[in-house]
């Protein structure tokens, strides 16, 4: 009986999806705003990566919401895990020499790559979220490979809070200077395709990169703490 109901439900959902998607014409332009971004985005924001100009300039307020969601998720995980922390510390088996040396060799290279991704977010594909995730994956490598090494929790919390603070303060300064909307691009746009261009976008992406990196590394750190 239960399986019949679930099959019927699945068929109903499939029918709904097929009818809705069948209504939408494939490949045609549904709104004019996308064309405007592609045509005018470079002149209006100064960022040569159009995805970045949409994420941080046209839709900057949404990005603040995204960053807040990630922040709340990390806080919630920390709160859920902090209540049942173990007291005693178990002996940690040391990693083999090859693994240990490999991790220590790869760690700065991955950090450098992540930093490159989020500093060049307005020029090349990628940005704060991707670069932050790459930075966090470097910390995971160290956590899994060289056991017993930890980043200080105070440092990671400070970096995380500073990242969020920079984002909000830059947005409020834009609001105060321009007076039109939050996250106004008040700095000079500079020359297209150079590192110091696009006004506030590189500052915001560096802040997001540090914030996301420390947040995701902190999440893994909490989980690892529990597993020992």
């Amino acid at each position: 009986m239960r399986s019949i109901i679930s099959i019927l439900l699945l068929a109903f959902i499939a029918w709904g999806i097929v009818t809705v998607i069948g209504e939408i014409p494939f490949g045609t332009e549904k709104s004019r705003v996308g064309g405007h971004y592609v045509d005018q985005g470079r002149e209006e924001t100064g960022a040569s990566n159009i995805v970045t100009s949409v994420v941080l300039n046209y839709r900057g307020f949404d990005t603040l919401g995204e960053v807040t969601v990630l922040f709340v998720a990390a806080i919630g995980l920390g709160a859920a895990l902090a209540t049942r922390r173990k007291k005693e510390k178990r002996e940690i088996e040391p990693a083999s020499l090859v693994l240990y040396t490999g991790c220590r060799f790869l760690f700065p290279l991955i950090l450098l790559f992540g930093g490159y991704i989020f500093i060049h977010g307005h020029l090349t594909p990628g940005g704060g979220f991707q670069g932050g995730a790459i930075v966090a994956s470097a910390f995971i490598l160290v956590y899994l490979g060289c056991r017993g090494r930890r980043i200080s929790e105070t440092v990671s919390k400070t970096i995380e809070s500073l990242g969020g603070l920079v984002f909000v303060v830059v947005g409020l300064v834009g609001l105060a200077v321009g007076g039109h909307y939050f996250l106004l691009n008040f700095l000079p746009k500079g020359e297209l395709n150079t590192l110091f261009s696009a006004g506030i976008i590189p500052i915001l992406y560096i802040a997001i990169g540090f914030k996301v990196g420390s947040e995701l590394a902190g999440v893994i750190d909490h989980l690892m703490e529990e597993s020992e």
């Binding site: 995805v51 991704i117 594909p125 991707q130 995730a133 790459i134 966090a136 994956s137 995971i140």
Partner: peptide, 13 residues
């Protein structure tokens, strides 16, 4: 952009 996010979050984290 999406490829980078998928590789670092989906595959690593």
């Amino acid at each position: 952009d999406v490829a980078m996010a998928e590789a670092s979050i989906g595959a690593a984290l």
